[in-house]
């Protein structure tokens, strides 16, 4: 035995004989639930936002470089694929924002009961949809309007 985790597999039958505990089954045997899906979603969106920071850095560097570089980045973002990426980035950022606040509430010791967890979970989903649509509605009306 070389790993401390092996020690935690050691268990006893009622007659005192030693058995190795069975392994816990992995993710795929469980039915997806609100709690697990939102937890996985929080991690996936974190990776998506991280990738999206490249766009942020490009935008900042272009704005600092000059009108030509800035026009290029604006042109790429205004492209349908660019807008789709930007929309995906917004959804991810907004979801991660609310899911992060949900985590901070848990960290403060509140909202651990199952009904509270489900309420805050659905609230997170609802606020994500509402905020994303609101930001894009304002953005598109400002962009196309004037």
């Amino acid at each position: 035995m070389k790993d401390i985790r092996d020690a935690q597999y050691v268990a006893h039958r009622s007659d005192g004989s030693i058995v190795r505990r069975p392994m816990s089954p992995h993710l795929q045997v469980y039915r997806p639930q609100l709690t697990s899906v939102l937890s996985i979603g929080n991690r996936l969106t974190s990776i998506a936002i991280s990738a999206g920071t490249l766009l942020l850095v490009w935008w900042l560097v272009a704005a600092a470089s000059g009108p030509k570089a800035f026009a290029t980045v604006q042109h790429v973002i205004a492209n349908p694929i660019g807008l789709l990426v930007l929309f995906g980035w917004t959804v991810s950022l907004v979801y991660h924002f609310y899911a992060g606040i949900r985590h901070l509430v848990w960290d403060s010791g509140h909202g651990f009961s199952l009904p509270a967890t489900h309420r805050s979970g659905w609230l997170t989903v609802g606020l994500t949809v509402a905020t994303t649509l609101l930001v894009w509605a304002i953005g598109l009306s400002l962009w196309l309007g004037a």
């Binding site: 000059g66 800035f70 304002i138 400002l142």
Partner: peptide, 19 residues
């Protein structure tokens, strides 16, 4: 996010001035 929304119509000199 609010700042980016207000900058949607800005060109480079305006963004630079804002920053």
């Amino acid at each position: 996010i609010v700042s980016v929304l207000t900058l949607l119509h800005s060109d480079q000199p305006e963004v630079r001035q804002w920053a």
